[in-house]
Nucleic acid binder design. Structure first.
Lengths: 267, 267
DNA sequence: CGAACGGTTGAGTTTAATCAAGACGTGTGG
DNA sequence: CCACACGTCTTGATTAAACTCAACCGTTCG
């Protein structure tokens, strides 16, 4: 599977920013409080799900809409205050920069996903979350929401479920990395990315891949060139087509799914 | 790092079964209730930590000491009732059996670790936990403890922390799998295993490796032969020595640690 | 004592990484 | 509006690493 570290998402919605976050659009951004979670378009996938209305008041104070983040800008770096980030539109990438200069990508995020939760990147020295395109996110302080969880009924369980999901997805990614062939891993990635785009209410066939090949490569534990070749081979097989660099269309979903399971051997 | 999925452990203790679990040793095992958590030698690393004494009563009923598990026996398989397992002595291995026959090892467990928590193996069709040697474990029903967590103060936070730890370790393992060279991965594994043995109060130099080479290989995403060769090369370099199959001694911890960081490139 | 299992080692093959060149595409400045 | 420069992607050639197949050895266990 691709974007294994996608982290909890439940509902589908578009990602145009047209009316997603008036409070952000109208001004000071960082402290805009105009939009309660109950009116947020992402509400069903946000922490607020299953929380009774009165308690929304309590949560509202914790959710800090951030000003739009531009491409390549960091949403989070190094030793910031411990925050989790709810992605409302755009896409993010979580990675850590190793001491030797290597960047290891841990996951990609689509609208509705929550980033910076359960990855321990606040512990990693080189942990960071960057926007892959213009994105809008809400930040929630982890200490505060955990404190709130002791008071607000249901919230603790919500956080727990979220964390469980993140953890399970990480385990799944480990299994996927165990699969040997480059082509299998890339197929897995495309298959999963497609599924997640659909969950986000977008087209799962004509996919936009906002990240670089080298990012995909890192995520899959491959070299950039190997990843690129795998894409090319899939295109040659007629499974996908690549009209442009960022756009990849799935021509034969079934065959893609089939390529997802490899022949079963070594590694 | 090795055994990335080790899962929460806090205190050190031996693993001889001499007096670890009287209730188990004396009989029917499965339902023995003779030993409250407060007397359990693993207490500080168990869920009972930071729980007030009266509440121990509530937890006591949830912790089910199991009869000793023999080598290669399963502690858990497939679609059992959702349990987590506290390891008191011995060692365990969590793995999933893929459809194509491949076994993917997700982690190894030492006394004080908790297995079957946050891995999602209850979801995976071929998920299992097996004993690598004669082991004694306690089972705790997940649904029950989660229900109890809504009542017992502090328990919810305890579970949360545990899960967070599991998740972070999985992410760390992903990073490790990103490292390219077989020798680096094996060095990482040995380094981490040593550290964990020490945490468990055992010798970190003269290590016992209860798992098969092929299990280590699977865990590290390598072929058995490659893993074996990496061991041999490390021995040739004078970093380790292998007096017997299961025993591996670390001769030069510093150099082992150095081999843990690889030169910084590709993959 | 023999069979089965696990581990090691070797030889040959395959895959992926590396090195290097060139092609897009995009955005910038003339 | 075009030219150029940069970042990124692709492709080719080569090298290096890991996988596979296979034989052999040592243990363990029946």
């Amino acid at each position: 599977m691709a974007g294994t570290n996608q982290q909890a998402r439940n509902a589908g919605q578009e990602d145009s920013e047209s009316d997603a976050a008036p409070s952000v659009r109208t001004g000071d951004g960082l402290r805009g409080r105009g939009v309660p979670c109950s009116q947020c378009r992402l509400s069903p996938s946000c922490l607020s799900a299953h929380i009774s209305l009165p308690d929304h008041e309590e949560l509202r104070g914790l959710v800090r809409p951030l000003p739009p983040v531009e491409r390549k800008q960091r949403v989070f770096e190094g030793s910031a205050p411990r925050d989790m980030f709810v992605l409302r539109s755009g896409s993010l990438q979580t990675s850590i920069q190793e001491a030797n200069g290597n960047e290891q990508v841990l996951g990609f995020h689509l609208p509705g996903d929550i980033a910076g939760f359960g990855t321990g990147i606040e512990e990693f020295p080189g942990g960071r979350i960057v926007a892959l395109e213009r994105s809008s996110v809400c930040a929630i302080n982890l200490d505060q929401i955990q404190a709130a969880a002791t008071r607000v009924k249901g919230l603790q369980g919500q956080l727990y479920k979220l964390l469980e999901e993140v953890s399970t997805l990480a385990q799944q990614h480990i299994v996927n990395l165990g699969r040997s062939h480059a082509e299998t891993r890339v197929a897995l990635f495309l298959h999963d990315w497609s599924r997640r785009l659909q969950q986000a209410g977008r087209d799962g066939r004509q996919m936009d891949l906002p990240m670089r090949r080298s990012d995909i490569a890192s995520f899959l534990g491959l070299a950039t060139e190997t990843t690129s070749r795998a894409f090319s081979r899939l295109e040659a097989k007629g499974v996908i087509s690549m009209p442009s660099r960022r756009q990849t269309d799935i021509l034969d979903p079934q065959r893609l799914a089939a390529l997802t399971e490899d022949a079963g051997h070594h590694d």
